[in-house]
């Protein structure tokens, strides 16, 4: 029966059938998707001022900072009838586990009512009180490196969150399920990146352009120049490391400059300078200059005053037409 209906349909109205088949596939797919979706909390921890960032990289100058983080729960939380699970929040120097460890720093727990109804809130984290900065020794008696100390090192802390809950199945409480938050990373970094390697240089009009390669830690490349009368290098430009080239202008043509690059990372650590090279900006001509050299006589600007005439004529014609309409009415 179903087959014969489908066959007749296909024969008589192929386009209509195609549309309905698409609609049906969509509906069936949606139902299947809904059946497979687990109603569990989805917890994330982000910065209050930028929810898209899940990592904060900082240096020695930020050791006394306090940053405000936001926890949020984007999906449903089970009813409190099966216990009242609070959301636990803590920072750790290792990986996030189900529960905070003894050396981890705990933050105030979020009651399940807040967690399930308001679904977002904020808490503060003091950099100086992160586990490896608060403690001076490790569990086995070793010495920890201090925040703001002279040593150059990189240390990652994670801010974790977790909740253990059970769903009310209607006939009782189900098995408790553990749900972890996506951790937020706090990266202490006092290690400067390695110096950039200059792979190409181009002298331009009152400018220089350098191509480079950098290590993965580098986020920004700084361009420094020293002219014949300068006592030291001056930074004249910076660019994102992903561009793989940086251009600095404001230089004088036909003057010999010493040029070098430095790399900078997200925490603001600056590398040693690259190898320095000598460059001399050159006078270049673009299309307008080539046009002029060929004998072109364009003066630039709105040079053709006569060109305004058609506009004036149009305005005049429009005015007359409006006057005529007024007269007729």
């Amino acid at each position: 029966m179903g087959l014969s209906v489908a066959f007749n349909l296909l024969k008589s109205e192929p386009l209509m059938t195609l549309r309905l088949a698409t609609l049906c596939s969509f509906l069936v797919g949606s139902v299947a998707l809904a059946q497979n979706t687990t109603l569990s909390p989805q917890i994330s921890i982000t910065r209050v001022d930028d929810p898209n960032i899940d990592t904060y990289t900082f240096g020695a100058a930020n050791c006394n900072d306090t940053i405000t983080l936001r926890w949020s729960n984007t999906l449903l939380i089970p009813t409190t009838a099966c216990g009242a699970p609070p959301l636990k929040l803590w920072s750790t120097s290792g990986e996030c586990q189900k529960e905070p460890g003894t050396s981890d720093v705990r933050y105030s727990e979020v009651p399940s009512l807040t967690f399930s109804s308001i679904r977002q809130g904020s808490f503060t984290v003091k950099i100086s009180e992160l586990p490896d900065f608060k403690n001076t020794t490790t569990a086995d008696g070793g010495m920890l490196q201090a925040c703001g100390g002279a040593e150059q090192f990189t240390k990652t802390h994670r801010v974790c969150g977790s909740v253990e809950y059970a769903i009310n199945t209607g006939i009782g409480c189900g098995t408790p399920t553990f749900q972890a938050a996506t951790p937020f990373k706090l990266v202490y970094d006092t290690q400067p990146p390695t110096a950039p390697v200059i792979t190409g240089d181009t002298a331009q009009d009152q400018a220089v352009k350098l191509n480079f390669t950098v290590d993965s830690d580098t986020t920004t490349v700084l361009l420094e120049v020293k002219g014949p009368t300068d006592a030291d290098y001056v930074q004249i430009a910076q660019g994102a490391s992903s561009n793989l080239s940086v251009r600095g202008d404001g230089l004088q043509n036909n003057v010999l400059y010493s040029v070098r690059l430095r790399a900078s990372d997200a925490a603001g650590n600056v590398s040693e300078p690259s190898v320095e090279i000598e460059m001399r900006p050159i006078k270049t001509i673009g299309f307008f200059g080539v046009w002029g050299q060929a004998g072109g006589t364009e003066a630039g600007g709105c040079s053709t005053s006569a060109g305004i005439m058609p506009l004036l004529l149009l305005a005049f014609a429009f005015r007359r037409a409006r006057k005529q309409v007024r007269k007729d009415s």
Binding site: T284, F288, W291, G300, G301
Partner: peptide
């Protein structure tokens, strides 16, 4: 307009920009 590098080109005293009608 005409650019040379990232700026409007200047040839002597003339700026490489304008408007034409037709």
């Amino acid at each position: 307009w005409v650019t040379n590098g990232s700026k409007i080109e200047i040839d002597g005293t003339e700026r490489g920009e304008g408007v034409k009608f037709g």
